[in-house]
Design a protein around this nucleic acid. Structure first.
Lengths: 338, 338
DNA sequence: ATCTGGCACTCACGCACAGCGAGTGCCAGG
DNA sequence: CCTGGCACTCGCTGTGCGTGAGTGCCAGAT
């Protein structure tokens, strides 16, 4: 077990390192923090902390830097979440209030998060499977071609082209549209399959194949792979700390361009509260020297998607967590209003 | 006027420099190209080319590298557009054919372009103002709240929330929807304002305010600022040549994150054919050492938007131009089918 | 037990310096 | 107008050394 003072030393190391980006030595520590002990004592504590794996030396005769494990301890026990200033809160609100549509909300959120945290921001679009249906529209483009438009309560719109096996009349289409909507509007997407299952039965034999085709396209839309979308921003912030990691910025950028990786990154957490994944805790190799701070957001109690930032492990965790949490809260409000 | 051989020397310099990324000297040139003259002669030619501003020396006693003006001449007079191989064409087609919707088409196009050119890809969504209306949908969300959904022939969907001055009945809404669609479907967006101008007159006095509100929201959607959207990809490719420009990658990334800058970048050209803007020809400062290769695409003859790539001025112009042109062509086909 | 001051040691960093080699400009002769 | 020769430039690389921040350890103080 680590004594109180040793934890204090670790906290000081993390704070100084985050601030200066340079390995911190025992002397500098005692000068900048009121630890009430001499450098020699701090050196002993450091030796212990190093044995335990919380800090490390880049080379002999250099100061110490925190390890992933050290940051983990810092985040879990030594630091809280730093609330934003009222001015920042107002700025967030103002910035998000101007959004005209879901794409706009997401785009603005990304920019906002990137600015606020000065890091790379990632925002997931509201998941279809966790939303409810607002409306389903069917448009005849050609005799045997229908466009299916799906609108969710979170403002998301999906469209699919359906090639029907036979021409479909306007009245049939209207009928299908009406029946479909009366069944699914206001229901959760996960319930949709069971709700529409027997729908073809209500139609004349000749239309059943068409109805089935439309329905199966509808169900395909909900398949995981395609239904998840993500927006990314603030990648220029990567260059802020690129001088330390000239080799590392490449794989990071590459990882960030892989939707799948990003989704996993955001998704790998329980719903409650801000999640922090530090360095090697991230499965993806290219992100081994980055941390991810993420949180769910939603119009109600339940999260419909997640958002967060990706930055160097050496980041201001309390501040970042505060910003991420605050932004998520406001985005939730905006979604609830629309 | 430059003699034929001098142009040949310039071409050789550009090709070698693009290939090796190193300043090219007179000796290396004669060894790698059959110019039929000695290094000394080439040196004289180089001196002339330098006087004319087509090439320059990074430092005394180094080889030459092309200037922006040199690349310009190369692109305009010395190089053609390199067609893609059949295999590449097939790959493009296969890759794009799997797209399920417009977002997907754009996303795939970006990835494709980035891979093909190994540079940063930029794709503009089909412009609303150059598309035609496929359908307008009105949904009652609450008594005095309507959702307006706009669908274009290029598959783009825009939605806006409308807060009405008074509650609006379902029949009124249906009436408006029908009248609106009968007037604007199949028409170009630019014509919409004049087509709907007198629409409120057809309604009872009590509904006119509401109808006007809906219509003005519709018209706002077409305003330049918000209607343009863009997708970006392959930024990781920037790091490929970052070792030359460690200072420059930052402003480039920053510029690329500014939608407005990007739009200007793509837009600054006439419609016909592939456009190349080299180095300082780009207005934006951060992009002074990059070139932009762009082209319009569309389902018919006319371009509905543009796409292209951003890369270092030292890029393979013929190959990049070929890839950009080919991709644009296929995207146009895909759009025409949907 | 725990802390402190002192001390010898390590090693990354910065700087000066020298040798190399690719590349140049110029000039005299073919 | 082209070519071979020649002296010169100058960026790059590698070496060597001094400096200083930082460490580990130990003996003595509290």
């Amino acid at each position: 077990m680590l004594s109180e003072r040793r934890l204090e030393v670790l906290r000081a190391i993390v704070q100084d390192y985050v601030g200066t980006e340079e390995p911190v030595g025992s002397k500098a520590l005692t000068e900048r923090h009121r630890l009430g002990v001499s450098p020699a004592t701090v050196r002993n504590d450091m030796a212990v902390l190093e044995d335990e794996g919380f800090i490390q030396q880049p080379h002999t005769s250099a100061g110490r830097i925190p390890t992933d494990k050290g940051y983990r301890l810092f985040v879990d026990r030594l630091a809280g979440v730093k609330p934003l200033s009222p001015a920042e809160r107002r700025a967030i609100q103002n910035f998000l209030d101007g959004a005209v549509d879901l794409d706009d909300v997401v785009a603005r959120t990304v920019r906002l998060l990137a600015q606020l945290t000065r890091q790379v921001a990632v925002v997931q679009y509201p998941s279809l499977t966790r939303s409810t249906v607002r409306h389903v529209e069917l448009l005849a483009l050609a005799p045997a071609r229908v466009m299916l438009v799906l609108i969710t309560d979170t403002g998301r719109v999906e469209q699919r082209l359906v090639d029907c096996p036979a021409p479909v009349g306007e009245t049939t289409l209207a009928d299908l549209r009406a029946r479909l909507n009366s069944r699914v509007v206001g229901r959760r997407f996960t319930d949709v399959p069971s709700l529409v299952q027997d729908l073809p039965d209500a139609f004349e034999h000749e239309d059943r194949a068409t109805v089935s085709t439309v329905l199966s396209t509808l169900l395909e839309t909900l398949v995981e792979e395609t239904e998840e979308r993500i927006m990314l921003g603030g990648t220029a912030n990567l260059t802020r700390f690129a001088h330390d990691f000239p080799l590392t910025i490449r794989p990071v950028l590459e990882a960030l361009e892989e939707q799948v990786v990003l989704l996993k990154l955001l998704g790998e957490a329980k719903d409650a509260g801000v999640t922090v994944r530090i360095g090697h805790e991230n499965a993806h190799e290219g992100l081994n020297s980055t941390s991810v701070v993420a949180v769910g957001y939603g119009s109600g109690d339940e999260a419909v998607a997640r958002l967060g930032v990706v930055g160097p492990t050496r980041m201001d965790y309390p501040g970042t967590m505060g910003a991420v949490r605050a932004v998520a809260r406001y985005v939730g409000q905006i979604l609830a209003e629309s």
